[in-house]
């Protein structure tokens, strides 16, 4: 099944691997380079107050984030984000497995969970501020509480839809509960769980930023709002860029982990398609 798109991607057959890599790199960098150059020219021709030139933003980036702010704002924020993501995923998978494997519990809780999931996570920030005040544990708790729903619900669905023949086979072979969990239930739920993890990552990042914008005095989100309130436009933009980089980094880590965890799954998909 060779479509025109395929030939386009792999290049005409005669070309060497090296040439193809060069072409791929060109494809990858062309548009970003054009966009940045266009922005540079635009900023040069008609300077805008709210859209400083990329050079000014780059300078502000180095001056702002590589100084004391790195240890005061950036690292604590990212550490909180990291811990919260690990907690959210762990809680989501653990609770999801228990609920998914217990039919009555699942049916009992489903509407409740659907309701909590439908609440936009940022709404939790005022509630948690009310309950816990503004503390580090509150900031952690609010990220976890907002972000663990996708993993939880996807784990429930994934665990529930374990192939019944395989479950019965595992029972016939007298696999212990732990073995069944380790070698059957969790692997077969893994593709769904990873779908949930992807959503959890982006919600966690959103929650981290907003919880810091909401009446605090340190952290990435706070810094960026502070720059905006003081009309430090280039610095504010450098913050936006930093948040963007964090988002891109998380996505890259996710893709890397997903490839490793789901290597078998992508393999099966490919054979099915061929």
């Amino acid at each position: 099944m060779s479509t025109p798109a395929d030939t386009m991607k792999s290049g005409p057959r005669g070309r060497s691997r090296g040439t193809r890599t060069v072409i791929a790199v060109l494809y990858a960098v062309a548009v970003p380079v054009v966009l940045i150059v266009a922005w540079l020219i635009w900023a040069g021709v008609s300077p805008q107050i709210f859209f400083p030139s990329p050079i000014a933003i780059a300078e502000a980036f180095v001056n702002t984030w590589l100084g004391p702010s790195l240890t005061n704002d950036v690292i604590p924020s990212l550490a909180r984000l990291g811990v919260a993501i690990v907690l959210a995923i762990t809680i989501g998978i653990a609770a999801g497995t228990v609920i998914g494997l217990t039919p009555w519990l699942r049916e009992l809780l489903e509407p409740v969970l659907e309701f909590f999931r439908a609440i936009p996570p940022p709404v939790l920030i005022p509630v948690f501020t009310l309950l816990m005040g503004i503390t580090t544990s509150m900031k952690l708790a609010v990220i976890v509480a907002g972000a663990f729903w996708p993993v939880l619900l996807n784990t429930i669905d994934g665990v529930r839809s374990t192939d019944s023949v395989m479950t019965e086979t595992a029972q016939s072979f007298r696999l212990t509960r732990a073995e069944r969990l380790r070698y059957l239930v969790l692997p077969s739920a893994a593709p769904r769980i990873m779908t949930g993890v992807r959503q959890t990552l982006s919600i966690a990042l959103i929650m981290m930023v907003i919880s810091e914008m909401f009446n605090t005095s340190s952290g990435l989100g706070y810094r960026i709002v502070y720059f905006q309130r003081n009309y430090l436009i280039a610095e504010m933009w450098s913050g936006i860029v930093l948040l963007g980089l964090v988002g891109v980094f998380l996505a890259a880590v996710f893709t890397f982990v997903e490839r490793r965890v789901l290597r078998w799954y992508h393999g099966i998909k490919e054979t099915e398609r061929a």
Partner: peptide
Amino acid sequence: RPIPSVALIPL
């Protein structure tokens, strides 16, 4: 795509 929309809040 992965750039969080909330980063644009100050802008």
